[in-house]
Design a binder for these strands. Structure first.
Length: 195
DNA sequence: GGTAGGATGGGCT
DNA sequence: GCCCATCCTACCC
């Protein structure tokens, strides 16, 4: 297979920015489908007004304040679900939005789950697309990603990864903060194809 | 090549 | 009632 061990909880028990950068190149696995993480965004505690945790802990944001290495999954625009991985130590808010994957397993199944017939580059190149393609729903909100069935694994080919840093996509509050991280030059990042 | 608008439902004021 | 951490289609160069 193209991937290795599950990431341990200690991987996630660091600052949100550290986790967001370190997740690039790791592999999200759900059932027969899997993809390499090529784009992430950090949502911090404290000054970050774009984060769902900014208005405090409640029923919705409880998972973000909980122990690291769990999935925070929510419905956006009434139609799509977004996958986040919780960082920071237990009791501190912080999570990483997974924004794009490079498909590496179960491509036919991923295509069947998407309504359209996208090219490989566009199969999971957005936060709403990748959850649909991998069959990830709110039923997995709060799930422990160090145990499964939704897991994140080490890639076996751990080449040096170039990281580009930009502002986050699709937000208005705290929009200037450089908290989006993309694998340099990767064709599978979100947005329309250029060229 | 580009942009505008609609779908759709939960959370918050 | 308004605001979303989105995506797709239609339409216009």
């Amino acid at each position: 297979m193209l991937w290795g061990c599950k990431l341990p909880r200690s991987f996630y028990a660091r600052s949100t920015v550290e986790v967001a950068r370190a997740l690039l190149g790791k592999v999200v696995v759900h059932g027969a489908t899997a993809g390499i993480i090529v784009e992430t965004e950090a949502y911090l505690g404290g000054e970050d007004l774009a984060a769902h945790s900014a208005r405090g802990q409640n029923e919705r944001t409880r998972v973000i304040f909980g122990p690291p290495g769990h999935a925070y999954i929510y419905l956006i625009y009434g139609m799509y679900e977004c996958l986040n991985l919780v960082a920071e130590r237990d009791g501190r808010p912080g999570c990483v939005l997974i924004r794009a994957l490079e498909p590496v397993a179960g491509v036919a199944l991923m295509r069947a789950r998407r309504g359209t017939r996208p090219k490989l580059e566009q199969l999971a190149n957005g936060p709403g697309k990748l959850t649909l393609a991998l069959g990830i729903t709110r039923a997995l909100n709060g799930a422990d990603v160090t145990r499964g069935p939704l897991v994140v694994r080490e890639a076996t080919c751990a080449d040096e990864i170039g990281i580009e840093v930009t502002p986050r996509i699709g937000i208005t509050r705290s929009a200037e903060l450089p908290l989006r991280f993309v694998m340099a030059g990767n064709r599978f990042v979100s947005g329309r194809r250029r060229r």
